[in-house]
Design a protein around this nucleic acid. Structure first.
Length: 905
RNA sequence: GGGAGCAUAGCUCAGCUGGUUCAGAGCAUCUGCCUUACAAGCAGAGGGUCAUAGGUUCGAACCCUAUUGCUCCCACCA
């Protein structure tokens, strides 16, 4: 779309050696290193007010995705703004060890090399894992730098740093001593792929199409079966009946320990006290009675499998049923299953169906939809499994954490999340904190050979405790499990400032509580709620004041961006293509807090175009020659933009105060593009080849400085680049960088002037419109007259109007001018005599149309004013407004009537 | 099954305590322009029964009720 023959024209431009398009790449590298070299991101406590953000630590092995882009752009905007407002801004970066995800990656890596995790043992495995971490762990942080993230990199932390791990151990012991951490056998969510337990929150439920299998169990006549106890072979001959159960998991029938029916179920009264026989393995199980069974569902007969279903487990406990666990940790069937041993649970499900068929036990299958739990990290289907785990009691910690949100000590933005937060906190369950992994902080519990155990920080301390309690303390072994990753990340806002190691150090005292937390609503409970609990428990204070919840980044047709769908653009490629500033603007343009972001590359394009606009506005100003002898004719324009800037700034500030970042950006965008470029610069632009007067130039340069400042948090690179143009701004010392410039403050706002210019803009638009309609070239100067009925003095706008609308002569008149094109702006009549003949008929039509509209308007206003109840109930200022509307409309109608009469005459 | 939220222009969203004929912005679209900063641009224009149906009110996009459609969260029905 570039006009090839246009570019060479640039050669004729004076002082226009800079390209017509902003080149982001070079500026980005240059200024990011410059900022680093000059320690602008570094924060140490001082006398200033702190402004602190701790980054939601990304997975150490992760790579940057669009969610990170959005999240970190927001944080950077907030932190840069705070820095420019004179606060001591501190953004603490870091990464999370993400035990299950990282361990899975390391296991996969080892597998590729033909190494099995179990064979090499824990120590060797950890060596590999650290090696992996050191190799890939920094990638995502390096990527954040490309985005312009102004983190204090000297403070970079990792959740498995020695100090942070110590904090985990110490808090574990602390909570254990309080009685809030306990150990027990429970049904947990087992991830057969990660081979670990996961917490309830890490289970994602999805609706899945399944089959419901109807399986026939023979029923044994109890007396006969007793009599023939020793002749299993003849079971089938002795059965007198059968029952049918419905299940989605036929591969678990070998673990059944009962069949349950509702005692009130008339259909099955004859089964009371009898026994059923599991098909294929022919094991006898009791038929028990419990009202838990829904008579409506399936056949009304429920197979009870305590080892592989939470409800069945509870039912089993109640009826003291044995537990038969037929699954290995990896989800394959073990020898207790007797059939299909070694098969994976899903393979077994497929294979058992023909077996049941052959045995005559399969009655029918039905399609069936139900919710199934998947592991958040590995996406494996969760298997309920009975095992010994560590738990953390949550109810007591939840209470203050709920209060601080309900009382508003912590604000959720947007606040619609308060409801969900409350629901969760009021129904909080104990947290399963142990994980059967190696990558993470090991549980500080020690066991002797007899199975006695203590909780202690070191083996030595454990031995001492064993001695005190007179237990055998030889050959102590530490618990093999590690704690849940979130058991370290919930300490993050405290641990990054060494608040556990040294609870009274100057950093934690200065930076804590932090100000804003920017994160996704998905981890509101996982992470945010638990951080609040930890804040109360370990510091007696909330960890942050505001939680800005971002939405999910989706593609433009609303699908969540994911690797598997391949619909996620590579953020670094986007930066390459549109520049970091362009991408930042693109991300922020349409993403109000809490709303999902329908990502479209077009937004980045818009961001890039905006950067280019700023760049070219700068080229314009840079190209001007200043002449001290030229007179300033732009006082009005300068005064206007000063006011307009303050007005817009007030709006921007208010948007920021409410965390409406996209609106703050849009307000900035419009101020710069429309008010500054399209209006102000056009108003004051000297004619080609003409110099600009000193006053206008200085004011414009100063305005430009302010514009760069308010743009900086959104577009750090281009602003810093232009900021350092020595020709325009003079040489700047390092300490005077844009990144640390003082944000402009809201100045005087001359509302009368603002309103006047708004009218003037309308006048100019009308004239341009007239040109468009009548196909008059903008180059052809026109004459303009005004009959100022409103009393407005247009003389101060003379320069603006003549320049912007190419008017050769702008004169006030006392009488209306007949037979001339015209328009009315707030009671004032404007006339544009045109050279060619007017079309009186068309003009008349236009006037009649406007008259009709005004009459309708007047009628509605008069109706209101004539309404007694309105006059009684409406606020006085509303009524006053209506009266003014009436007067305006009447004046306009009068002018139109006069014009119509003129046309007629 | 329970709870919450949303529905405004082709798209993404504003619309704050009901009150300018209130229906807005950006993008996209259309028309005319290579006007000496910028065609990644300039100037102008056209787009909407505010999901549907009722109600409250002098007055409703806004408050209430119902309906429809979508989204999210929570929940053990095999």
């Amino acid at each position: 779309m570039n006009h090839i023959y246009y570019e060479p024209n640039c050669l004729f431009l004076r002082a226009m050696s800079i390209p017509t398009k902003y080149q982001p790449k070079e500026a980005e590298d240059k200024w990011y290193s410059y900022w680093l070299e000059n320690n602008f991101f570094r924060s140490v406590p001082d006398e200033r007010e702190p402004y602190t953000i701790v980054i939601p630590p990304p997975n150490v092995t992760g790579v940057l995705h669009m969610g990170h882009m959005l999240n970190n752009t927001i944080q950077d905007v907030l932190i840069r703004r705070a820095r420019m407002k004179g606060k001591n801004a501190c953004w603490v970066p870091g990464t999370d060890h993400a035990s299950i995800a990282t361990e899975a990656k390391v296991v996969a890596m080892l597998k590729e090399r033909g190494i099995n995790k179990k064979d090499i043992g824990r120590e060797k495995f950890m060596e590999y894992a650290w090696e992996w971490k050191n190799k890939y762990g920094g990638i995502i942080l390096e990527q954040l730098k490309k985005l312009g993230a102004s983190c204090d990199w000297d403070r970079t932390r990792f959740t498995m740093d020695a100090d942070l791990s110590d904090a985990v151990t110490d808090t574990f012991i602390h909570l254990y001593k309080k009685g809030w951490i306990y150990r027990g056998i429970r049904m947990v969510n087992w991830d057969p792929q990660g081979k670990t337990a996961v917490s309830d929150e890490e289970v994602i439920r999805k609706e899945v199409n399944q089959k419901l299998y109807y399986i026939r169990y023979k029923v044994v006549n109890s007396e006969l079966s007793m009599a023939n106890k020793n002749s299993n072979i003849h079971h089938s001959l002795l059965t007198i009946d059968h029952l049918t159960i419905a299940t989605t998991r036929p591969e678990t029938i070998m673990a059944d320990t009962a069949v349950c029916i509702n005692p009130n179920d008339e259909r099955y009264k004859h089964l009371h006290g009898k026994k059923a026989i599991i098909p294929l393995i022919n094991r006898e199980i009791p038929i028990i009675l419990d009202e838990y069974v829904d008579m409506e569902f399936g056949t009304g007969c429920l197979k009870v499998t305590p080892a592989h279903d939470l409800n069945d487990y509870e039912l089993g406990q109640k009826h003291q049923l044995p537990v038969i666990d037929i699954l290995n940790d990896d989800g394959t069937l073990n020898e207790k299953a007797q059939v299909l041993v070694g098969e994976d649970r899903f393979a077994a499900r497929k294979k058992i169906i023909p077996l049941l068929g052959e045995a005559g036990a399969l009655e029918k299958t039905e399609d069936y939809k139900s919710q199934i739990g998947f592991s958040e990290r590995t996406d494996a289907v969760i298997e309920p499994k009975l095992s010994m785990q560590w738990f953390c009691k949550m109810d007591e910690m939840a209470r203050p954490a709920l209060d601080s949100v309900l009382k508003g000590d912590i604000k959720l933005i947007p606040d619609k999340f308060i409801n969900t937060y409350r629901y969760w906190m009021e129904n909080v369950k104990d947290w399963c904190i142990s994980r059967q992994l190696w990558w993470g902080q090991r549980i500080p519990a020690w066991y002797n050979e007899k199975g006695n155990w203590v909780v202690a920080k070191t083996q030595k301390e454990a031995e001492e405790q064993f001695l005190i309690s007179n237990f055998e303390s030889r050959n102590l072994k530490q618990d093999e499990d590690v704690v849940d990753t979130w058991f370290s990340s919930w300490l993050w806002p405290i641990s990054v400032f060494d608040g556990f190691k040294d609870p009274n150090n100057s950093d934690i005292n200065y930076y804590y509580p932090t100000n804003d937390l920017v994160t996704a609503p998905e981890i509101l409970f996982f992470w945010v709620a638990r951080m609040i609990m930890a804040g109360h428990e370990f510091r007696g204070e909330v960890p942050f004041r505001n939680v800005y919840l971002t939405g999910i980044v989706r593609d433009k047709i609303g699908r969540k961006m994911s690797k598997s769908l391949g619909n996620s653009p590579d953020p670094l490629e986007l930066i390459e293509k549109y520049g970091a500033d362009g991408v930042r603007v693109g991300m922020l343009l349409s993403s109000p807090a809490g709303n999902d972001l329908m990502f479209d590359e077009k937004h980045c394009e818009q961001g890039r175009n905006f950067a280019n606009k700023v760049w070219n506005a700068f080229r314009l100003v840079k190209g001007w020659k200043v002449d001290d002898n030229t007179v300033n004719r732009n006082e009005t324009a300068i005064a206007w933009f000063g006011s307009r800037f303050s007005e817009a700034l007030a709006d921007i500030e208010s948007n920021f105060a409410q965390y409406r970042l996209s609106e703050a950006l849009m307000a900035t965008y419009k101020l710069v593009w429309d008010d500054f470029c399209s209006w102000y610069l056009e108003m004051i632009k000297p004619d080609f080849g003409q110099p600009v007067d000193k006053e206008t130039y200085d004011s414009t340069v100063s305005f430009f400085e302010d514009v760069l400042k308010i743009l900086h948090p959104f577009m750090p690179f281009i602003t810093e680049e232009l900021w350092h143009d020595a020709e325009v701004f003079g040489e700047r010392a390092a300490k005077d960088c844009c990144i640390v410039a003082k944000m402009p403050e809201i100045g005087q706002i001359d509302t009368q002037l603002l309103r006047g210019v708004e009218s003037v803009k309308q006048v100019i638009t009308e004239i341009r419109n007239t040109r468009n309609n009548k196909q008059i070239s903008p180059k052809q100067a026109l004459k303009l007259s005004v009959r100022a009925n409103s009393g407005t003095d247009y003389s101060i706008y003379n320069g603006i109007i003549t320049r912007m609308a190419n008017i050769s002569e702008f004169t006030p008149v006392a009488q209306r001018i007949a037979g001339v094109a015209g328009f009315v702006i707030s009671q004032d009549e404007f006339y544009v005599p045109l050279n060619e003949n007017n079309d009186p008929a068309a003009e008349r039509e236009r006037l009649l149309k406007e008259k009709e509209y005004l009459q309708g308007f007047l009628r509605s206003v008069e109706a209101k004013l004539g309404n007694e109840r309105f006059m009684q109930n409406a606020k006085p200022e509303i009524i006053e407004n209506e009266l003014k509307k009436k007067a305006d409309a009447e004046a306009k109608l009068k002018a139109i009537d006069e014009n119509l009469r003129g046309l007629a005459g």
